[in-house]
């Protein structure tokens, strides 16, 4: 029983990270049609900015700085690199591929390829007892942050004008323009939101793994991609459901099956979902 509780909470913690990365990816893809390989870079920017700032300004300010830096990176990437390519989606994907390669290399040249110890609040290192299991508090930190982000994101999409524009734009971009709305402002906005959430994921991931390295973003990114596809491109709720499914499946199979079997089972899940429902669990058709 205690193992099941620990595995569940750990799986949900992992799901929280996946969700934070995937929700931004999903919105960016749904609205702007860009499969963003540079998303892992946003994650690393957030993590490294916080790591750099923490000794100077203290952790809370450093976290805010990291999130802001990642959001700024996202907006900048959209404005400078994605926007000039208009609707040439393949080229846009290629540019993000180049950016992900160059960005990771840049981080390596600045701070080395080795992992760096990441700071975390003292209370996050503690352990609590739940139903007989000893659960590290950092799991709750991840889960709590992800739930807050999910609620905030849903409220933003539902109740604000920009949220309305983003939801409409995911359905039909051209028609949003035909209503007199500059849809490209919304593109920049989703890149900034995606960047901020990825940056937060990078920071929380750093606290969870107690270390950061330049390549960390890329390995999380692939599972986030899988979450996006299973959840449906452009759907925040879909991303949340898929993230939980993927996180739990991965943890449980990794524990009870052969090592690495959890990762394999996630990919099998993806193949099964795509073959039975090409549109994903929720959201629009994935073949666009």
């Amino acid at each position: 029983m205690s193992t099941v509780v620990l595995l569940t909470l750990t799986g949900l913690g992992l799901a929280a990270l996946y969700f934070l990365i995937a929700s931004g990816l999903s919105l960016v893809f749904g609205l702007a049609g860009v499969l963003n390989f540079a998303h892992g870079l946003f994650l690393s920017v957030g993590a490294y900015a916080t790591w750099w700032a923490a000794p100077h300004w203290g952790l809370p300010a450093a976290v805010a700085f990291g999130v802001a830096a990642a959001a700024a990176t996202g907006a900048l990437v959209e404005l400078v690199l994605i926007r000039p390519l208009y609707t040439r989606h393949t080229e846009q994907v290629l540019v993000t591929v180049g950016l992900s390669l160059a960005g990771v290399a840049l981080l390596q040249s600045l701070w080395g390829a080795d992992a760096r110890i990441f700071p975390r609040p003292a209370w996050a290192a503690e352990v609590t007892g739940v139903l007989g299991a000893s659960v590290p508090v950092d799991r709750y930190l991840l889960i709590g942050a992800a739930v807050l982000v999910l609620l905030a994101l849903l409220a933003f999409l539902r109740f604000t004008r920009y949220g309305l524009i983003i939801r409409a734009g995911v359905e039909n971009r051209a028609m949003v323009s035909a209503l007199g709305i500059d849809v490209r402002i919304a593109f920049t906005l989703v890149f900034a939101i995606g960047g901020a959430l990825a940056g937060l994921a990078g920071i929380l991931g750093g606290m969870y793994f107690s270390a950061i390295s330049p390549g960390q973003g890329a390995s999380l990114l692939i599972f986030a991609f899988i979450v996006v596809v299973i959840g449906g491109l452009g759907s925040v709720t879909g991303s949340a459901i898929a993230a939980v499914a993927v996180g739990l499946l991965q943890q449980f199979v990794n524990y009870y099956g052969a090592p690495g079997a959890g990762d394999v089972s996630v990919v099998v899940l993806l193949a099964a979902v795509l073959l039975t429902r090409p549109a994903g669990v929720a959201g629009k058709v994935a073949t666009a």
């Binding site: 939801r167 209503l179 007199g180």
Partner: peptide, 11 residues
């Protein structure tokens, strides 16, 4: 996916 009111509000 938007309600009638939202469709109008957007416009």
């Amino acid at each position: 996916g938007l309600t009638v009111a939202e469709n109008l509000r957007l416009a």
